[in-house]
Nucleic acid binder design. Structure first.
Lengths: 230, 230
DNA sequence: CAATTGCAGATTGTCAACAATCAACAAATT
DNA sequence: AATTTGTTGATTGTTGACAATCTGCAATTG
């Protein structure tokens, strides 16, 4: 990431962190779907680690809301609830608004170029009509904005939220279908506001932007819950 | 808190959580000030627990940014940096803005009463000229707003930020000196906006509100850093 | 004498064994 | 038959021992 290419650095990563990485990947990819039970001994066996180390990994993931612990009963990938989807999207909206505001306040020509490059990728993908790429570059542009703020806590927080949103999207198998040029336009006004340094406008646009797909997901989950309760 | 008084419930809390509670308290109260080193064996001895359990507690506190881990070298209460203070206050501003918005969107007469009661406590304290109480009820009113949202993740996040802000304030020994009636007035307009259900106004006021004391803290720390670098 | 190497002490990283708790079912009781 | 009370197997909670790594200093080397 930030290591100079010449100085060959070995990033020492403790086993529990590595274990957390592996398990996280399994959850996000859908191999451990929501509702799946995780058993310490089984994971320890599979990863060829001791139970304590696996346990430590699971505790890390607890703080990312990717697993929940039921005392003396086990670990669980939390099931999908509409309440959680609502929380995720509202929180994301708030964080992105903040990020856009801060980014606009500290804009520079280098940062503007970085952001515009990120935006251009989105536009290109939209013109190609490549929905998957649009989706990915959509995430990318927001991530760029977050990074422009140089706000460690915000980056960390956002990462955790984004992870969970991805989990919800893959688990619902919902590739949201919107007008591609519309998406590009919305982003354009946001990018412009940030690059001009118009903080409050940037915040407004960013926060309003990320609500639509949130609501469709919440509605989808609410219907599912209504069906299951009957 | 929320247990019925009749049904005698024992809240089972695992030892590592209890240990985390104790250590957290020590840090927040200033017994373990920023820069203080924490040694697993010493803590284990003092708490009469095994090292593994203490270790688990420290990992929890890592996710609250109350301790940092230097691999193979130890645990540390992170020193005060102006960058962190900036992050804390900007993030808090964003979260409070979101909370005010959501609270306004879901206001009810019960919730309004709750909020106004919380506000009244602040007013009373301001009239008494009791700075300590004003400060505490100031925190209280914001906490009330957060709770009105019924947003678990927001509550959790906010709690962690508030903790750290308290740490910074006590460590700097900075009891911020502002005009008490001014504080009360600012809050009044916010409370009113929320109770009217005026979401965007409430957000605006809330987010602008919590910036002033943040900046004084950042400035104080920057001066300190400038002095130390010489 | 500067730079490197090797060693000792302190501290964390990992593990495997034992204890505590839980859920489900069988047995006993009324 | 319904309720209570053991019992058992599975799983997590906790611990103490051993391994790996870091820091600082002394010994060695050129």
């Amino acid at each position: 990431m930030e290591a100079k290419p010449s100085s060959l650095t070995v990033i020492p990563r403790s086993l529990d962190h590595q274990a957390a990485d592996v398990i996280r990947q399994q959850i996000l990819s859908g191999s451990f779907p929501p509702g799946h039970r995780l058993i310490e001994t089984q994971l320890a066996e599979a990863l060829d680690l001791s139970r304590g180390t696996v346990r430590s990994a699971l505790q890390q993931l607890t703080y990312e809301n990717l697993v929940v612990q039921l005392p003396y009963r086990g670990w669980l990938v939390p099931p999908l609830r509409s309440q959680d989807a609502w929380e995720l999207y509202t929180l994301r909206s708030g964080l992105e608004g903040l990020a856009a505001r801060l980014a606009a306040m500290a804009i520079s020509s280098e940062k503007a170029t970085l952001l515009e490059r990120s935006f251009q990728q989105l536009v290109d993908a939209a013109q190609r009509g490549d929905r998957n790429a649009v989706n990915e570059f959509d995430f990318g542009i927001h991530k760029t904005i977050i990074q422009l703020t140089e706000h460690r806590r915000l980056q960390q927080q956002y990462k955790i939220i984004e992870q969970q949103i991805r989990l919800y999207i893959t688990a619902c198998n919902t590739l949201l279908e919107f007008d591609l040029t519309e998406i590009a336009n919305q982003h354009q006004s946001m990018v412009r506001a940030i690059c001009c340094g118009n903080a409050s406008l940037a915040q407004q646009i960013a926060q309003d932007h990320s609500t639509a797909d949130g609501e469709t997901l919440v509605n989808y989950l609410q219907e599912l819950e209504a069906k299951n309760s009957k």
